[in-house]
Amino acid sequence: MSNPAWLTEARRYIGVREIPGVTHNPLIVQMWKTIKRGGIKDDETPWCAAFVGFCLENVGIVSSRFESAKSYLSWGQPLPGPAPGCIVVFTRDGGGHVGFLEGLTIDGRLLVLGGNQGNEVNIRAFPESRVSGYRWPLSWPRPHVSLQIGAAPATGGEA
């Protein structure tokens, strides 16, 4: 299975990070504009959903166009389990998190390419126990491959 266009797009931005202080990264500010949230003009507002939406919109897929990670729980179509490139939504204290599934660690954590992970775009490992849902764009055929937790020999840092 080839990589979905949005995952290829997301990989282009690995390393983009917030700028500490009063200056804001113009690319992160552009992410807000791309998802139609141009009133947000900083890189301190949690921007994981802006990153996901930005990548989707850049390849012609309408995103949730909302600043909440949890907005992706009602976006697209649900998947019964993790699939390469799917949008994965997590719970966390005080809100949620969203990113693209890159793979699995050997111990079953999800490797997620996302924005605002330690104030930057990177790939980090998350426990499956935090997953609220797996989503896929309506305009793309559902993937036939579902990853088996604990079966992929990859590594990544804990988020």
Rank of each mutant, 00 (worst) to 15 (best):
M1P: 07
S2I: 11
A5Y: 03
A5I: 07
Y13M: 03
V16G: 00
I19V: 14
V22T: 12
H24S: 13
M31H: 08
T34I: 11
T34S: 12
R37Q: 15
I40L: 13
D43R: 04
D43Y: 08
C48E: 10
C55P: 06
C55K: 06
L56E: 06
E57S: 13
G60W: 12
G60T: 13
I61V: 15
S63W: 13
S63E: 11
S63P: 01
R65C: 03
S68E: 10
S68P: 01
S68T: 08
K70H: 15
S71A: 15
S74P: 08
S74Y: 11
S74C: 02
S74R: 14
W75D: 09
Q77H: 02
L79T: 08
G81T: 02
G81S: 12
P84L: 14
V88N: 01
V88D: 03
V89C: 06
V89W: 04
T91W: 09
R92I: 11
G95Q: 06
G99F: 02
E102M: 15
T105A: 06
I106W: 00
R109I: 05
L110D: 04
L110W: 01
V112R: 06
L113G: 01
G115D: 00
G115S: 06
Q117I: 03
G118E: 09
N122V: 09
R124Y: 13
R124V: 11
A125I: 00
F126Y: 15
P127V: 12
S129N: 02
S129P: 08
W136I: 04
P137D: 02
L138G: 00
W140H: 12
P141F: 04
P143K: 00
P143I: 04
L147I: 12
L147A: 05
Q148V: 15
I149P: 00
G150E: 10
A152Q: 15
A152N: 09
A152T: 12
P153S: 09
P153R: 12
A154F: 11
G156P: 02
